[in-house]
């Protein structure tokens, strides 16, 4: 009987691995390894349009040129990335600015190294927007008072931004009823009338628009012109111990960002390799901006608003956080 058990277990295992192979080729070692002048580093990110420049940079050989082999590991949410970087399962990660500032104000040792994405800075033509259903009576962010507004995460960058839009339109953000909902569920919830408005980003924004939804504000533009929304980061420990690797990563990423920013068609092509966004939706997607450098004054504006909304335990130290 025991032999049958062992045989079965081994059999299924072999079948599973032999028939399908495994994508877990990155190995289990936590640290970076180098061989022949090429350093392998792990980058943890969420598979969304925002990170297209990195995929493009790998494809175009920008990282290889700088002596880096990038091993990309995808996670389902930012919540898995920050602990991953701090406990050095990844050497680099991708996170939005508010999360990074919250982490730093909680004494989590993170250090931003490269720009991630920026808003387009154009009202009504950003990659994120407050949208309402076709035929809704809501016309501006001020009308959101007393309404149910969906955001992906409470107490984070999108809540700060929507509150600022309401404030700028002359409304009281405290009167807005925020509910938490994943971006991908917003189009259906909006369509069914479960929510009155949604702070939605691409590609769900394209879906909302295809249903006849209307944009009433561009919150990320309202926070600051050319807001730096997200950045690539590492742990302070790694930054101190491997300044050379960080420098290579910064150079290669800056090059990738610049390339992506000027080659939108190649961006759309590379996005299909790691997401499943249908071609019809992808054509409608508004791409973000990918400046090579972060915009410090916009981050200061975001910090100030975050502090006003009570997101931070202590004021984040941008001199320490930013590269």
């Amino acid at each position: 009987m025991r032999r049958l058990f062992a045989g079965l277990a081994a059999g299924t295992f072999l079948l599973a691995t032999a028939a399908c192979g495994s994508s877990d080729d990155s190995g289990s070692s936590g640290g970076s390894s180098s061989s022949g002048g090429v350093t392998t580093v792990k980058l943890g990110l969420i598979p969304i349009v925002d990170v297209a420049p990195v995929y493009l940079g790998v494809q175009k050989g920008f990282y290889e040129k700088h002596g880096l082999k990038l091993s990309i590991t995808t996670a389902q949410g930012g919540a898995a990335i920050v602990p991953g970087v701090v406990s050095s399962q990844f050497q680099f990660g991708f996170s939005n600015m508010t999360s990074l500032m919250v982490a730093q104000s909680n004494s989590v040792p993170v250090q931003a190294v490269s720009n991630g994405i920026a808003s387009t800075g154009v009202q009504g033509k950003d990659f994120g927007a407050i949208t309402v259903k076709k035929g809704s009576t809501l016309e501006s962010a001020k009308d959101l008072e007393g309404k149910k507004v969906a955001i992906n995460t409470l107490k984070n960058i999108n809540e700060t931004a929507v509150r600022e839009s309401v404030r700028k339109a002359g409304g009281d953000p405290d009167k807005v009823n925020f509910v938490e909902l994943a971006f991908d569920q917003m189009p259906a919830a909006l369509d069914n009338g479960q929510i009155d408005a949604a702070m939605v980003v691409e590609p769900a924004l394209a879906t909302v628009k295809s249903q006849g939804g209307v944009e009433i504000a561009s919150p990320l533009v309202d926070v600051a012109p050319n807001l730096t929304v997200a950045m690539y980061f590492t742990s302070t420990q790694y930054a101190q111990q491997h300044p050379d690797v960080v420098k290579k990563f910064q150079e290669a990423t800056a090059e990738s960002l610049a390339y992506a920013d000027s080659h939108p068609d190649e961006v759309r092509a590379v996005v299909t390799t790691y997401t499943k966004i249908p071609a019809s939706v992808l054509d409608q997607v508004t791409l973000p901006k990918w400046p090579a450098e972060a915009n410090r004054s916009s981050i200061e504006a975001l910090e100030k608003l975050g502090e006003q909304d009570g997101l931070f335990k202590a004021t984040p130290d941008l001199d320490k956080l930013l590269p």
């Binding site: 995808t74 790691y274 997401t275 249908p278």
Partner: peptide
């Protein structure tokens, strides 16, 4: 979590509006 596998693929399809 997003560990590689069918579940992660479902999540990618979900966020991709596919």
């Amino acid at each position: 979590i997003g560990a590689p596998g069918l579940g992660a693929r479902i999540a990618v399809a979900q966020t991709s509006q596919a």
